[in-house]
């Protein structure tokens, strides 16, 4: 078990280094002078020179990368060109809405998708299955901002059940916060749930065709027990894996959703940074999200041990 954990941890390190190189090259290998690029469109020559000095742009690329990566390891991602605040501080300030949105979305997704997938597999090829799978195809065909505006139109503009946009921080109480993120979470969850429901169905179909399912049925267990205790546990690994892969999709969705609902989270920070051409923030946010994804997938790898006794060995 310890060997497995260490192995996964070690495997994540080169991936993280490569990600850092990609993100670094994104700004530094694009045509044009990075100092001019980083300074923004309205900078004067002195400002450009200051940036060149501060970022060691006169040094060779490899040295520059070393400095940048070294700082990043100490949680120093540089300063925003727009507000002159440290990028890490900007991210920390914006983390709450994004975290709440992602957590509620994940909860809704699992609550919607896993039962739907199980039911679809149980009634495979029947009309319930067809209905659920049609919903799934529709779910990931309709872009998240289209679903978002559809929800806003019916539940915020017409029925007035929820606010059209905005976010109420947790300091106002949990229920107020949840009320403000309901529509964005549903919009995101519908897209994400479509993917998870399909994978749950496929994994469940496989598990239901296994010998242990037949044994469970032969010894007279009820349908619910067979589906949930026996089959779903064995279907857990592919489902969890896809939730992990889906996190990358979720991050993209968060960026769009926060923009639609005007939620002051990290996604909004990203879009604002890009429209202001605030490159240190852009670099920092992408690095942050990528590190998060690597971490989540690492945790998912480790969670396999819970589902598959063979991994523990």
């Amino acid at each position: 078990m310890l060997g497995y954990v260490l192995g996964r941890l070690l495997a994540a390190i080169p991936i993280f280094i490569l990600v850092a190189i990609f993100i670094f090259s994104l700004v530094h290998l694009t045509p044009g002078d990075p100092a001019v690029l980083l300074a923004g469109d309205n900078a004067n020559p002195q400002q450009v020179e200051k940036i060149r000095e501060r970022l060691h742009l006169d040094e060779p690329l490899i040295v520059q990368f070393g400095i940048w990566a070294g700082n990043a390891l100490q949680f120093d991602l540089g300063e925003s060109i727009y507000s002159n605040k440290p990028v890490t501080q900007l991210i920390a300030q914006r983390i709450e809405p994004t975290f709440v949105l992602a957590a509620v979305t994940l909860f809704l997704t699992v609550a919607i998708a896993v039962p739907l997938g199980v039911i679809a597999a149980w009634r495979a090829n029947g009309w319930i299955d067809r209905g659920i799978m049609a919903f799934a195809v529709l779910g990931f065909s309709v872009p998240v901002f289209v679903i978002a505006y559809l929800l806003v139109y019916f539940f915020a503009v017409s029925l007035r059940w929820f606010p059209v946009q905005g976010y109420k921080p947790l300091s106002n109480g949990l229920l107020t916060t949840l009320h403000s993120v309901t529509l964005p979470s549903i919009a995101l969850a519908l897209v994400f749930a479509a993917l998870i429901a399909r994978v749950t169905r496929a994994a469940m179909l496989e598990a239901l065709s296994e010998n242990f399912t037949r044994t469970a049925r032969a010894k007279g267990l009820g349908t619910f027990r067979i589906l949930v205790i026996h089959a779903l546990k064995s279907a857990g690994i592919p489902v969890i894996t896809v939730i992990g892969i889906g996190f990358a999709t979720l991050v993209g969705g968060v960026v769009v959703t926060e923009s639609v609902f005007n939620i002051p989270g990290i996604g909004r920070l990203t879009v604002d940074a890009i429209t202001r051409r605030d490159y240190p923030v852009v670099q920092g946010v992408i690095l942050f999200f990528s590190a998060l994804l690597i971490l989540i997938n690492l945790l998912i790898d480790l969670s396999y041990a819970l589902f598959d006794p063979r991994v523990k060995g």
């Binding site: 999709t249 991050v251 960026v255 992408i286 999200f289 994804l293």
Partner: peptide, 8 residues
């Protein structure tokens, strides 16, 4: 694949 596609 660790970098979110949309952000990239």
């Amino acid at each position: 694949m660790a970098i979110p596609a949309i952000l990239l």
